[in-house]
Design a protein around this nucleic acid. Structure first.
Lengths: 277, 277
DNA sequence: GGATTTGTGGAATTACTGTTACAGAAGTTA
DNA sequence: TAACTTCTGTAACAGTAATTCCACAAATCC
């Protein structure tokens, strides 16, 4: 009873908590453990519940009073300051069972790390540099489940630079969207397993028009790879019904971050102007 | 005056302190900042002086009351706990040829792992169970940068179960989309920082209609949390221009995977039928 | 060495915080 | 839908902590 951290106790209760109790728990875990060191009223306000609920919450945690609970937090903090453990260490769950979410997210994290090995740093950097040159237009397209990624990337790139075009919808084959493509233009295509034939058509057309294709795909590589100048493969395999695209989003966000950095001069103005609205 | 840390202020005073004042200072710096978070009496005992001296000491430091002093300590602590991420973000930008992608993806992976601590396993399971009950309708909506997450979730849930409705676009306030909402219906809302006022309106309307709101948000919790029955906070902070949503997608994919599992009986048929086409 | 100023701790006071009781709302079950 | 149970917030209450006051001690200055 005494050896457990407060965060550990919260995880133990888990289902035993009521709706408002969870809000309290979330608030505390959200900025741990500072909120718990504040007076009850402040804790309550920060968690969006009443003071009474906070008191009941700490009682459920097994403390006989709120000051008692705070003492535990302080001692815990003292403990930690002696060894350079991080915030995460205090919050980590016990290895007792294998909760679905924890397992799944751990696998997601692993895929992220595998992806590091799959992508050449130089190639990534080159793609980002190309993206921050605003002379050329840049076209984006995705397939059935990856179209959202194209949309996400588009939304951000639009804020950073001009000349972004999105190829929309199913009849992507329709060549009228590609009619303005000039040699040397950039095209970012997303294609993952159950590779989309329509996407391959688009790639072929782009290739004919001498566009430079950036392919973002899974570890088995879409057939588009043959036409791609740059290729960024991501780890997606899950062994379940659906493959997972979180690692791809990670790479997309890395691209956004890097391109924003590289073209900060112009980007900062655009962002200011567009966000201000 | 406001920007300085408490430790810094002590150092500034230094000579100006009286004999007993020094004891207080030494005590506090001895196990900083925990002793300052304790009640005055405890601080006094720990430093070997009287309570009155402690009060005078914090007054000399420039605080107008002891609680005020404690607030400063808490904020300082909060500041410090957030800095490692930001420091990491800053470091990676410095050396020209540093492995930007590797650093960024490692941070993404870390956010994924932090998210595990933020979400209660029981709550996650409950949400998934509710989603696999097909009696109720389920509504989805997202804000500016999170709408694509709603779309991604929608696309998969549609394959798994009927009764999925997406609230689209900007004028989401338009109540006609919500007119059919019945008490007990489920609504999954995405809202991250730069919280969307329109989304809050939607949440309020849904709340009035007794819908059960599942909120997927960042670690600072959208104001919608007040109306939400279930809340799944994700780690998104990057210290850069844009926050990162890969962890949110990770959670979304976990939901998809779990719901698919739970309702495999009916889901497998639907997937077969719809995918075959 | 006595008078004066300054620092300190103990006790009274005050303000505020944590606690509890109660009433209303929400959820659950028949 | 209605009765019952559980939960939650409001508000009054009680307890404790912070603050102030005062007497005493220490150091400093005539």
């Amino acid at each position: 009873m005494e050896g457990k951290t407060v965060a550990g106790r919260i995880h133990d209760l888990d289902e035993g908590l009521t709706s408002a109790g969870r809000k309290a728990a979330r608030g505390l875990l959200g900025n741990y453990p500072m909120l718990g060191l504040a007076p009850v009223a402040e804790f309550a306000a920060g968690a969006g519940v009443s003071a009474a609920t906070i008191v009941r919450f700490v009682a459920q945690l097994g403390f006989k009073s709120y000051p008692d609970f705070q003492r535990a937090l302080r001692e815990e903090l003292e403990q930690r300051s002696k060894s350079p453990l991080q915030r995460g260490a205090m919050l980590s769950t016990e290895p007792g069972e294998a909760p679905f979410l924890a397992t799944f997210l751990a696998q997601s994290a692993q895929r992220l790390e595998e992806t590091v090995a799959l992508i050449s740093p130089g190639e990534f950097e080159t793609v980002c540099r190309r993206l921050s040159e605003t002379k050329r237009n840049c076209y984006l397209a995705g397939g059935r489940f990856t179209d959202f990624l194209a949309g996400y990337l588009e939304a951000h790139l639009r804020l950073v630079r001009p000349g972004i075009r999105r190829l929309d919808g199913r009849p992507a084959t329709s060549a009228d969207q590609l009619i303005d493509v000039k040699p040397g233009d950039l095209a970012i295509l997303f294609d993952v397993r159950r590779y989309d034939p329509a996407m391959l058509d688009v790639a072929q057309t782009l290739s004919q028009r001498k566009a430079h294709i950036v392919l973002i795909t899974d570890e088995w590589l879409s057939p588009i790879a043959r036409h791609a100048r740059y290729c960024l493969p991501c780890s997606t395999q899950t062994g379940r019904t659906w493959d997972a695209n979180a690692a791809i989003l990670g790479v997309v966000e890395a691209i956004i971050a890097r391109v924003t950095e590289l073209s900060w001069e112009t980007a900062s103005e655009r962002i200011g102007a567009l966000e201000g609205e």
